[in-house]
Design a protein around this nucleic acid. Sequence first.
DNA 1: TTGTATGCGTTATCAT
DNA 2: ATGATAACGCATACAA
Lengths: 364, 364
Amino acid sequence: MPSEKNTIVRIKDIALKAKVSTGTVDRVIHNRGRVAEDVKERVLKILKELNYEPNLMARMLGSKKQYVFAALLPDHAFDAFWLAPKLGIEKAERDLKQYGVRVEQYVFNPHDPQDYVKKAIKLTKMQPDGVLLSPIYYNETLPFFKKWNEAKIPFVLFNTQIADYDPLSYIGQDSYQSGLVAAKLVHYGQANPCSILIAHIDEEINNAQHLVKKEQGFRNYFIQNNLSHHYNILRVELNRSSQSGFIKKLDEIIESTVDLRQIFVTTSQAYDIAKYLEQRHIKNIRLIGYDLIPPNLYYLERGDISFLINQNPKGQGYWGINQLAEHIVFKREVPILKYLPLDIVTAENLNYFIDEKDDAFVDI
Amino acid sequence: MPSEKNTIVRIKDIALKAKVSTGTVDRVIHNRGRVAEDVKERVLKILKELNYEPNLMARMLGSKKQYVFAALLPDHAFDAFWLAPKLGIEKAERDLKQYGVRVEQYVFNPHDPQDYVKKAIKLTKMQPDGVLLSPIYYNETLPFFKKWNEAKIPFVLFNTQIADYDPLSYIGQDSYQSGLVAAKLVHYGQANPCSILIAHIDEEINNAQHLVKKEQGFRNYFIQNNLSHHYNILRVELNRSSQSGFIKKLDEIIESTVDLRQIFVTTSQAYDIAKYLEQRHIKNIRLIGYDLIPPNLYYLERGDISFLINQNPKGQGYWGINQLAEHIVFKREVPILKYLPLDIVTAENLNYFIDEKDDAFVDI
DNA sequence: TTGTATGCGTTATCAT
DNA sequence: ATGATAACGCATACAA
């Protein structure tokens, strides 16, 4: 075992031992070139030997470098879900401010691919040091991935995953696993055979992949646990654009399925079903959904929604910016995939997941 | 609105505006004295006006001050629960290392009050800048609180709360609320009337207060929801010191309560009941318990335990040290009470709560 | 290709 | 009671 030096190793120490100047060591550390090959190797060796770790404070102090990240995300005026990621991004910005990091937000209308592209172009023009985005339009996104790759601008994805052009990392949920969780809850609360409805309530087709995975996880739970013969699992795709169509379709299902006891809503629109059940005075059907948005919370607290699975939207924003900073500012390795916890939320533990406290994100 | 200056306000700027030197400003900021009253007030005023915020990097760089915190906690060799807080403490130490913070751990045998006192004495002798402890012995603790208060050493409590001698803050769970959560889960999974057993499995009497609160929360759920007449709620105190007594008591209850369907274990020993049910080949009784310790996880994954409520032990350690640093190093206000989320854990979302990833703590 | 000097914002140590 | 100035460890511009 090499002796554990208690004292901090500085560039000056390295320079001394390598019989060069601090400038040379600096050039080696940052690969700035202009240093002889043999010297470089010697310094590199000593760097390892002494286990040099840069003093981040000093580094940030000494460098007047400013970093600008760009965040491309949907306007929460159109869908309340997107407020939380925005807050997370802003929290991260506050945390990283002292390291010279600034975040510029580019908000787009999630119903308008044109706007998405427009904002993406604007963003690219700014030449940010890194990009965080929720790429809800696949085809529209790919060209930008290519551009950013060529410009060597790292980008991090959140909430929606696209594997092409290897992003720096993806932050989000494990949709399949969340389906398993939902199924477990359904199964736990439903001992007797019955029918179960999987409801996909799409506003857009954006997150189709997610919904498929959620359904797969949900169904596989019953298969893996040899419960398929106990439960009759139905599925429906609902569209809120036509209020009457929405109700009509539900009416049909309810009438034709007398033993329907549970509905699993794969999107954040569980409140729509809750409202429907309320209007129809149906009390013996339980609901599980996603996302802690206000209308869902209303029905959760009334007991009309049993559970909500929290997708940690604030954390997605926070960690997204954080990953960028880790990579770009601190030059550390970052995991390609960062799955956030699948929180099971009831009226009883709700407080801990919606509170305004800023520090609910820290990964310990 | 005063104009939002984009440039950073430095001590030098304050000095310039106040027509004094940076040294004087420094003395004002840190209350080091040796500055005329009128000058002090002038500087203070400008400090506010310009909304000065110190550059932490520069501060840490310029200051050779080192902080030593002491952590007093039970040895996890005696109870696996205590491993997590230790890991959290060590994670916090890593995070704060660059700010000159070091943490010294004082581990005691949780079955031996003498040892607790011994380690507390040793700790006090070291004159730490702050103390984090889990004060599992009330009477033995009070004298130290008094001492630390006199010595102006701030202390933070975790897991066990003692309000006397106003600690800097308490980190832990809301026991009452966790009882509500447990009851909700029981109720959700048990539509038909039945008997429910609350089992307190004490190793020590240490956490008696917690257990009472958990029971209160649990019972109140049924009262508040007008369900009392549906369920027959029993309670039992079990002691593991006598294996035969433990089994005998359970046998009696099982035999005399044919409609027993759920057991709520208020401590981390749910696995003991799971093991018992396994040996007796009882399959129609469900279990809810606390804490993600290995034996519990074993039965959770097998499905013998339905849910575990996670008390975030790692977070308790992490945030404990963090609160000390916030107060002592960064001189910020810290909340007197910090409740950690009540995570509902099943076999399906377990991964996210036990993973080794260090960053599972961040409060966003 | 290499070395030196200056500055970052703050603290701390001297003089005055 | 006050001011000037040298660290802190690193980055950077410039000199050699």
